[in-house]
Design a protein around this nucleic acid. Structure first.
Lengths: 128, 128
DNA sequence: TATGCACCTTGTAGTGGCTACAAGGTCAAG
DNA sequence: CTTGACCTTGTAGCCACTACAAGGTGCATA
């Protein structure tokens, strides 16, 4: 499988895959006679895991940890759980922040009387 | 007021203020005899508006638009409202995404039986 | 007066996670 | 034998900062 095909199968782009390789998330694959990267099912699975974790908001550093844990299947699951739980708490925090922010924005927009900027509530609220 | 004092009053840093100046969000202030930036209440108010808007998640481009609208108080409030409303919709979208993500993460973590990585549900879910 | 120290100055480079080129190489179809 | 889709490397850009380094200023204290 060439890089473009792998990209299509994983909803990525060739650039991103090469970027993952540069930064060490993916290993350098074998090459064809014409110097094209040649991927197999192992790399496909690994990339799928990476993409899925990234979509769930894990940072690249967390993904790196998850990958190295996944590579040793006899190990205890605790470390994996702790990364995921930490991330969940972080997501909860962000959700809280975003909800507060939304409420403020909502009020701000609702209070706008669509008059002149001089007495615009939005600008007033922003000015504090 | 020197840059450090302005930073403390607005919950920013001197670096960030200089960055705003470089990128045109803040104008170049007058200088003291010793070449220090010298800020007054006008700049303080402007920076407060910028910080408030940034805290509410507006991009720097949006802040730039809001600032130039705020500078012309006789203008209609509509443009301000449309920027804020658009941003609110964007925040709503992000909230939805984050809630879905949280649910998935929650399930993932809850299903983990804390055994070996080999049969870890988290890794399984991530692998798809 | 000297010295220390907090603060300021400019400039440059790094962060994360990609994304967008440019300039050229490979390969199968027509 | 050329066209066109794909691939290669390398470099630079995005956002919104953040982190230095190397040097200048200004004020209190010994």
């Amino acid at each position: 499988m060439k890089i473009g095909a792998l990209a299509r199968k994983t909803g990525t782009t060739a650039e991103t895959i090469r970027y993952y390789e540069r930064t060490g998330l993916l290993e350098e694959p074998p090459r064809t006679a014409g110097n094209y990267r040649d991927y197999g099912p192992t790399e496909l699975a690994r990339l799928r895991l990476i993409r899925r974790a990234r979509d769930l908001g894990f940072t690249m550093a967390e993904v790196r940890q998850l990958l190295s844990l996944a590579d040793d299947p006899s190990q205890s699951c605790e470390a994996v759980d702790s990364i995921a739980s930490l991330h969940l708490r972080e997501v909860d925090r962000k959700l809280g922040d975003l909800r507060k922010l939304r409420t403020e924005l909502r009020h701000m927009v609702d209070d706008c009387q669509h008059g002149a900027v001089g007495e615009c509530r939005i600008i007033e609220v922003l000015s504090g």
